[in-house]
């Protein structure tokens, strides 16, 4: 893993979406996802409209469709089981291309697929227009417990350090003629993982020492404060508000 590891999700740009404060974007995405999952699954057209809304945001953020679609592939392993549902679910059955499928199963699969894809697409848009560090500041601003924010921020800082340490251990193993070729070698890998854990634990202690030496007393000092104006909040609210309208139409039409 390269040095750019922490920023691979981010796509540099200067669009109005990039410029929004992170807490506005986080809140907007969260509300959008809530609205999407509470839409009745039978309102198929509503999901089409949600997709159009997201496509508009992507266009404003100048995130190309190809980029977005490639990132969406992350979802595949999670929805794989949705594909199985029409085959295994109970209830009345229907013929599709010569296969006997459950009607309930088909609706269930559609429900997971549509809502999952929209949720992932919204998150991908958020990640590609907001730097990781900013996301953390946003979460802090939204009053996520400070401890969780600190843990996440250390994960970002030390992810590369630990990956690098892992790589050095692998090189050291390989240099002494070790090659993992099957279950017989898992023991060695497990011991390496154990050693890595202990090293990281010790590093944690040294980092804590360095923090205490510079005046750390349990909470991170506020260095950057991201503030959002009323206009920025209302701009970010456009997405969930439009989605809410679609959702209500889905329930009442």
């Amino acid at each position: 893993m390269g040095a750019g590891h922490a920023h691979r999700l981010y796509r540099h740009g200067h669009s109005p979406v990039h410029a929004l404060p992170p807490q506005c974007k986080l809140a907007a995405v969260f509300c959008f996802v809530l609205v999407v999952v509470s839409t009745p699954r039978s309102a198929v057209w509503a999901f089409g409209l949600y997709a159009v809304l997201l496509a508009t945001v992507a266009a404003v953020a100048r995130v190309p469709a190809g980029f977005l679609l490639r990132r969406l592939l992350i979802e595949v392993p999670f929805v794989a089981f949705a594909v199985l549902m029409p085959f295994v679910a109970e209830g009345p059955r229907t013929e599709v291309l010569g296969l006997s499928l459950s009607v309930h199963g088909l609706w269930g699969a559609w429900n997971i697929l549509a809502k999952g894809t929209l949720g992932v697409a919204a998150s991908v848009l958020l990640a590609s227009t907001t730097e990781l560090r900013e996301l953390l500041l946003g979460l802090q601003r939204l009053r996520l417990p400070a401890l969780l924010v600190q843990i996440a921020s250390f994960m970002i800082r030390y992810g590369d350090v630990i990956t690098d340490e892992m790589r050095r251990m692998r090189v050291a193993r390989a240099s002494r003629g070790f090659e993992a070729r099957g279950p017989r070698h898992w023991g060695v890998l497990a011991k390496s993982a154990g050693a890595l854990f202990i090293r990281s634990y010790e590093r944690g202690e040294r980092v804590h020492l360095a923090m205490v030496s510079r005046g750390y007393a349990g909470s991170m000092p506020v260095i950057d404060d991201v503030t959002a104006s009323r206009a920025q909040w209302s701009y970010a609210a456009v997405l969930p508000a439009a989605a809410l309208l679609v959702c209500l139409m889905g329930w009442f039409l």
Binding site: S153, Y158, R206, M211, S213
Partner: peptide, 13 residues
């Protein structure tokens, strides 16, 4: 105090 390993000392993003 400046510790020996700068990766221990530099812990912010």
């Amino acid at each position: 105090i400046v510790f020996q390993d700068p990766d221990d000392q530099l812990f912010m993003p």
